[in-house]
Amino acid sequence: MHIIIVGAGIVGTATAYELAYDGHQVTVVEQRAAAAEQASFASAGLLAPSLLIPWAAPGADGRLSRRLLGNRAALRLVRGAGIGGMVWLWRWMQAGRHARAGERLSALAALGQASLARTRTIAHELDVDIESSRGTLMLLRNRADLQLAQPALEALAAAGMPVREVDADTARLIEPG
């Protein structure tokens, strides 16, 4: 089958690769001069699906909803979002309170781990040296920031992702830069 992929970002190129790997004829069409010049470029090559897990269970514990206002809000709607934005926000928060939210977190964690494993396999097969790690280091300046991050950390732990707190010296050992 001949398939045309629109967009040569990380999703488009990964999709094209997998389809070609399965034996399809694939053409990728990109409006820019090179691949990954827009959103994929802005992510700086970060492959960390676990960072998205807390957003799959918004409001699961009620704390996120209390942090939607003010300078340190977890999420803010842009000005002009209007009633449509408020409806989306309400639905998003209700989804996190759903009885099956924990199942979704586990499924998202499994999908993220499968994605990382496939990325590493492809990098090995193509002999590509990609910078990757086995985790994500989240830097927090003080105990107040830790308190704000607690719902996200709990969501990660609930999804089966190992979470541990380290001191500044250990953080420097993990990431000297």
Rank of each mutant, 00 (worst) to 15 (best):
V6G: 05
G7C: 01
G7Q: 01
G7K: 00
A8V: 00
A8E: 02
G9K: 01
G9F: 00
G9T: 00
G9R: 01
I10S: 10
V11Y: 03
G12T: 04
T13Y: 08
T13K: 09
T13W: 07
T13R: 10
A14E: 02
A14V: 04
A14H: 03
A14P: 02
T15W: 04
T15R: 08
A16F: 10
A16T: 03
A16K: 05
A16D: 05
Y17L: 13
Y17A: 02
Y17S: 03
E18T: 09
E18L: 14
E18V: 11
L19R: 11
L19P: 12
A20T: 13
A20H: 11
Y21I: 07
Y21H: 13
Y21K: 15
D22Q: 15
G23Y: 11
G23Q: 10
G23M: 14
H24V: 07
H24L: 09
Q25M: 11
Q25I: 09
V26Q: 04
V26K: 04
T27R: 03
T27W: 07
T27V: 03
V28D: 02
V28L: 01
V29P: 02
E30H: 08
E30S: 09
R32V: 04
A33K: 02
A33P: 04
A34V: 08
A34I: 08
A34M: 12
A34W: 12
A35R: 09
A36E: 07
A36G: 10
A36Y: 06
E37N: 12
E37A: 13
Q38L: 14
Q38E: 15
Q38V: 15
A39R: 10
S40W: 12
S40V: 01
S40K: 01
S40I: 05
